[in-house]
Structure formats: C-alpha cells, structure tokens
Design a protein around this nucleic acid. Sequence first.
RNA 1: GCCGGUGUGGCGCAGUCGGUAGCGCAGACGACUUGUAAUCGUCAGGUCGUGGGUUCGAUUCCCACCGCCGGCUCCA
Length: 617
Amino acid sequence: MQDGRNVVAGDAVRGGIDEEREVLRHSTAHVLAQAVTDLWPGARFAIGPPIEDGFYYDFELPDGERFSDDDLPRIEARMREIIAEDQPFVREEHSIEEALAIFAAQPYKREIIEGVGRQAGLDEAAGDHDGSAIVSTYRNSDSFVDLCRGPHVASTGRLGHFRLLRVAGAYWRGDEHRQQLQRIYGTAFESSDALEAHLQRLAEAERRDHRRLGAELDLFSFPSEIGSGLPVFHPKGGLVVKLMEDASRARHEAAGYDFVNTPHITKSELFEISGHLDWFAEGMFPPMELDEGHRYYLKPMNCPFHILIYRSSQRSYRELPLRLFEFGTVYRYEKSGVVHGLTRVRGMTQDDAHIFCTRTQMAAELHDILGFVLDMLRDYGLDDFYVELSTRPERKAVGTDEEWEEATEALRQSALGRGLELRLDEGGGAFYGPKISVQARDAIGRTWQVSTVQLDFQLPQRFGLEYVGADNSRRRPVMIHRALFGTVERFLAILIEHYAGALPTWLAPLQVAVLPVRDVHETYALEVASRMRSEGLRVEMDPATEPLGARIRRHKLAKVPYIAVVGDEDVAGGTLGLNRRGADKPERGVLVDDVVSAVRTEVASHGSPGASITGRP
RNA sequence: GCCGGUGUGGCGCAGUCGGUAGCGCAGACGACUUGUAAUCGUCAGGUCGUGGGUUCGAUUCCCACCGCCGGCUCCA
C-alpha cells in the first residue's frame, strides 16, 4: 500500500444556515483584525476567511512581537467593545491604484490587490473583462478598513456569539518558504445556544481523544526514550490489536488472499528500482551503511517486496489474480511537528495487500475489494461512508491516457456499483495511478479517511513484471495496492474515538469482571469466572479487598462491558447480579449461562451490551 | 522543518519574586468484609525533561537539544 493514512477531514455538508454563518464569521474576523490593530498599532493583517467551524485571521505584529494564548482574552475584550459600538460595515469601491494607497502600510493586502490587478489584466487580454479593475473594501470606523469582497453583516452589533480559540503559526499563502505569520482561530455562531453546542462538541471530541483514552485504559504509550511517533502497545492494547489482526486474517483468508512476510530493511537497490529513493526519499529514515558501503534502508512501503515475491517465479495467467497480503510494518520519517498520537506515527503496521491481475480482471477485482472493505468496516461499527475518487494529476503522470481512463472508470464503476456516494478529487491521484479512498463517518459525525485502493501503472513497469497469457504471449499485469485499516495504529485510534473508549464486547480486553461481595463469596466467584473462561470469555475475578462500590467504579472506568456481582443470594441460587455497560440499573438473579450466551451473541455480531438479558427491567 | 505554548514522583496538578519541593489518585503494608461509581490508616516514591551557562547557590534566570500540546507546511 502506498499510503494508508490521512488527516481528519471536516464535514463538508453545507446549507443555507452555513452561508449565514459564513457571513457572520467573516464579519467577526474583521472585528478581530480591528481589535488587533487597535491593541498593536502597526500590526499587519493578511487574510481572514470563514472556515468549517469558525474563522481565522493571520497577522504580523510590529517589531517582531508575538501573540501568546494569554493575549486572547484582551483581544476578545476589545472585540466586544467594537461589537457594543455597533459600527456599520460600509462597502466602498476603489481602483487598484486607490486601494494600493489605502493599504500603503499593509504589504499583504497590497500583494492581494496587485494579484487582483494582474488577473483583471489577463481577463481583459482574454476579452472577458472591460479592464477597469475594482476592489471593494469594508470600513467600519475611521481607523479601520479592510480589503474584502464581502458580504458582511450590516453592523458589528449583529455579532457577539463568538470565542477566540487559539493562536498558531501559518505561512503566508501557505508557502513554507515565505513569511510565517501568526494565525488566531476563533468560532462564531448566530446564537449563544449554537455557540455553546459547538463548544460542547469540541469538549466531546476532547473526551474521545484516543491519546488520552489510550493512557487511561492502559492500551499504549509513547516512551520518549524510544522516540517521537513510535508507540508501544501494553497488554490490553496488544490484545485489541491481536483481535483486530485475527479478524482481518480470517477475512483475508476467506477472500482468497495469500499470506506473505517480508523484512523491515533492505538494500538501497530495491528502492532505486522502485523509484522510492527518487520521489519518497525525504519520507524515509536515513540509510545504515553496512558491508563495505552497502546502504540499507528501513522500508517505508511494502510494495516492492511483494513485487519481488511475484517475480520470484514465472507467472501464468492461470495464477491471477494473485493477492499477496501482509501486516507489514513500515517506517517513515515524518517531520517532527506532524507526529500525532496513533494517527500520525513514524513506525506503523499496514494491513497491506498487492493484487496482481490482468486488465480484464481489474474491474471485477476492484468491485470485490470494495465490497470486502465495506464488510470489514461494518465489523467495526462504521457504516456511514462516502468514497473519494482521485483522478490523474495535471502535471506529471505515468501511463497512457487509455490506461488512466480505463482504470479511473473501473474505480468509479466499483464505487457506483456499491451504491456509494462518490466525490471527485480532480487531479488528486498519484502520478502512478488513480485511487479511491473510503471516508467513514464516526459516532460524532467526523469523517476519517480509512481504506484506500490504488491502481499502479509504474511499478509493474519498473520491475518488468510479466505473466504468460493464454496465447503464450508475455503480458504486463495490473497492480492494485490496497489497505483496509490503512494502518493498524491509526485504525485503532479511530475506533477508540468512535466508541469513546467503550470498545464493543468482541474487542474489549476484559469482557466480564466477577466481583464477590465479601470474601466468603470468592470461591463461588472463581467458579463463575472459570465457567465463563471455559466458554471462551475474557473474565477476571476481583477479590473483596476493597468495598464493592470501589471495585465497581474501577471497572466502570475501565469500560468493562459486564460487571458481575455475586453474594449470598447468588451462591444460594447459582446466579449473579449483572451490571451491563450503559445500563443505569443492575439486574439481579441472572443465570451464568445467560451471560455466556449474551456475550457470545455480541461477540458474533460485534455488538456491545444491549438490552436486558432477562427481559426484566 | 516553522511559529506559539509546555515539561515537577506511574497519572493529574501546586509551588519556589534564586536558598535543592508539596497535594490528590495510583502503588506497598495493615485494618475494615462490604449487594452496585471512591473505607480508613501507615509507608514508600522526585538529581523538578537532558546538557551547558550565569550565580556563593539554579527546579526557578539564559542558551541548546529532546519530548509533548495547538496550528502551518507535508501526508505520492
């Protein structure tokens, strides 16, 4: 798989209310700029657009001064004064020359104005403009005017339900070689209720943060002695990973994949042939010098290894499609500032497969892969998807037009054939082939890029892959890269956030905790636990060394699906008291067998503790 | 990599305007024997991220590096 990870995408749904919000957010951004220029005379301001959940504005303070988070309350206070003054947003129009004069002290604004002027010149040359370039400004006081296309609210008094959130660095025009500005992020809504609701959503996302839950649930950690972006999985996290991998292997076996294994390091030669050293070198760890100057690299991708397995013998069309699967651990040198929890790491394990097939098999294979992907994602409670189709990049691309057309069409048909919403990512493909990526929405509506399926025209050619066709001629196979989890690490992070740490029963490290009320019940508790264990449940007995309430609390915090309590009544009746995760009240007098069958049912269906076992309230 | 912030016992935090540190949880031990979200007590645990520098003296000030957090860039 070329790449299985990506950043969180926002929800892109837009409606009428969003247009209103854009206007008020944009207007609030103007007020922010005004407040900053009031507090730091001479501050330069760059751009301040509305964004998904709010707005930002980029600044450069005079004399190299910098904002810190502590400045936000002051700025907010000044913004509230401006809002209280109810200043009108007055639109004015100016020629390019006038505008350049107005913004004489604002180099970023001048650059934008000059850009508008240049574009107008081009349009004129193209004949679709009269050449009289005009820019608009919005003035809301004698001292503050901003270059802006608009529209804006009528006056600052219409604003007010906003919050400044953080200060961050940002490059001018997004170019890392240019001036780095400081960006202030904020959010704004039409009512305090809507603002509060949004702040609640932010708090909810924070509550679900896998880095925090991972530590609380004792799943994994990032020892600094090992290095940035290099996680270790603790016994509980390791168990969850094992369960995921077991389930994945079972599915792959059923779907006709072959299992392979490849090393973590290789001589440079392999990545010279594959081309990775030409176009991926900066994403790779530097080489180790061994054996008289041979350079060995940690692998950033598995594909070249799988290709060598393909090439290890002469292939017949009868062997195709050949599907080679591996949990392949790869290492990538991510820049220090981008490492993030389990979603952006430097060492990761991909559920990676490479499928070699004929061109005529390609469409059917893609169709099957997509079905395979969706089935697997549904195993993990992800059932709301859309698919992004990334097409040929404009600049460089290998492969013929016909190949691109055929492959892109095959990808499109595979998505449509599954009834999936398709979004086009024009020119977003890799130079070596188009791809589709499956985006899944989680429990709180965020979308994550998970699986990717990618056609590759380059590697079969570079490695000279062939198979012998029915007519005894040598042909080049088509190669499909695909990862379903993407990476195990990242997928686990998504699951933790999706389930807010309350993993479904089949993935829960501990499924049942058995708690004797007093130590005299311990023998019976052990019997219950051992009975459950013999039925394949993951169960532990927690002895009565502390009060029952304390033990219950500990297991509730650990999000254990079932907490069984056994006391006098249960010893007498061969039952237990059951505290199901998510239920407000415990059930008494439950039969052990009923718990066993409930857990087994949930494991089979990949569910979580559901309705009452006994049917009683 | 860049900008800003941050780093105090396993975890969450306090503190020292420069005179080598405290709390809660967790841990160990003891008592308590508990019917559904924290029983009580005792004890132990930190060269205050690392390395330099300033100083009579640095955890506190300065510099560099490392880690982490928020962004930018990147994410083939």
